[in-house]
Design a protein around this nucleic acid. Structure first.
Ligand SMILES: [Mn+2]
Ligand SMILES: [Mn+2]
Ligand SMILES: [Mn+2]
Ligand SMILES: [Mn+2]
Lengths: 220, 220
DNA sequence: TATATAATTTAGGTAAGCCTAAAAATTAAA
DNA sequence: TTTAATTTTTAGGCTTACCTAAATTATATA
């Protein structure tokens, strides 16, 4: 049996290291930061997760998920994104409200429930924030995504996804009129503060560096 | 903040004392039995719930819910029954599978979620087992229900509800062809073992005392 | 390379929910 | 009414998931 807390550690580890971006290995402090606990607590939990063969970890060494740990993490992420889709598509929740509730729903244990939910939603391939939903076997159609901060000035892009976990950010995106799937052109980026200007169906929009880091696009 | 465990204690107390049947006050051991914990654990929790003004309780005295405690219990029961309805009506779960999953879902915290779910389901008045769903203000349309074991031989009844928490019982009910809303006549009851015979659309069906105690009917 | 800074680990502690075993109070039986 | 059985409460412990403070190791800087 794997606890709700353990699931959250595995999910955090996945997002920090094995995740989409495929960043470097995460450290104790970074994990602690991400989970809003202290590094000492993370260390305790890592020992337990190692015991259970869900992570690989040596003292002062790097932390990584085992195949089993990764599978569990992906399962939780799949549930999270299906629930977000349910709340958005079926119950009419707003973009910025669904993540928090999905953080709870993702821990409900029932294989049948998630199967049936998937079917009920029509086997969606992305969640309302544009994030890919892994299938029942934990497979990802790996999408190539670039943060707007890394995009090339002059290029035309399609908005693929947005960061899902900050309501204030999402409210600002809603106000800006930007939507998943929108076609935009990166008009300019300031060398001073990273401030960007994009054109979206003929109108201009200012995007800060902070904002741009949370918006993911793909060339088109 | 009220924990998942505390919610389960309040719900158990409600079902044992303030509930539908409106039975006598529950004792420590009865509560313990119902929650599958030991009486000593119940005692610990009762002290905490008294602190929080959710139950009234004096040493060696009777246990009862405060208005606040009762309200919380009803809220959880409302959520439980709405989720059961969702699983049954929308996801096509079987009668005997929904209770267990609803035991988890009933603890999800989001006022908006439960409001929207209620609307999505079309404001159902009873759950799939025939139990009344309290409204958003915690009000019950109090239904008069008699266990089949207490019913009068010769009378015609309508099946109102069945006990929801035993999959094997529910599977047996499904096999017997008995459904919520069905019109039945209690043909006979043995003075020896309480065994009953009912007629349901012209066919005869044998019902044990154990079974009859879990089937609730109303005169019609 | 030596030293300062930062990250990690250890040690010792807390609160929630559970347990067993024993003591105390209540209730039922003789 | 006295004794026996049952129920409830107390005492002391355990596990999970946190914490702070101090020690240790690793990394960056001079
Ligand atoms: Mn999310
Ligand atoms: Mn979570
Ligand atoms: Mn139920
Ligand atoms: Mn419950």
């Amino acid at each position: 049996m794997i606890s709700l807390t353990e699931e959250n550690y595995l999910k955090a580890l996945f997002h920090l290291s094995a995740g989409q971006g495929g960043k470097r290995e995460a450290g104790t402090s970074e994990l602690a930061e991400h989970l809003s606990v202290k590094p000492a607590s993370v260390h305790d939990m890592l020992k337990k997760l190692k015991e259970k063969k869900l992570v690989e970890y040596e003292k002062y060494g790097k932390i990584s998920l085992t195949t089993s740990g990764r599978n569990r993490a992906v399962e939780v992420i799949r549930k999270h994104r299906l629930w977000e889709t349910f709340l958005y598509d079926k119950l009419g929740f707003n973009w910025d409200e669904i993540h928090e509730v999905a953080e709870q729903l993702e821990h409900i244990r029932s294989a049948k429930l998630i199967e049936r939910l998937d079917k009920f939603l029509g086997y969606p391939r992305v969640d309302p924030h544009g994030d890919v939903i892994p299938n029942a076997r934990g497979e990802w159609p790996k999408q190539v995504r670039t943060a707007l901060t890394e995009a090339t000035v002059g290029q035309v892009y399609k908005v693929l996804a947005v960061q899902d976990n900050s309501p204030v950010f999402l409210q600002q995106v809603i106000k800006s009129g930007l939507k998943i799937g929108a076609r935009i052109r990166l008009v300019d980026r300031s060398a001073f503060d990273g401030m960007m200007e994009i054109s979206i169906n003929r109108s201009r929009q200012a995007i800060s560096r902070e904002m741009g880091g949370c918006i993911f696009v793909t060339e088109c």
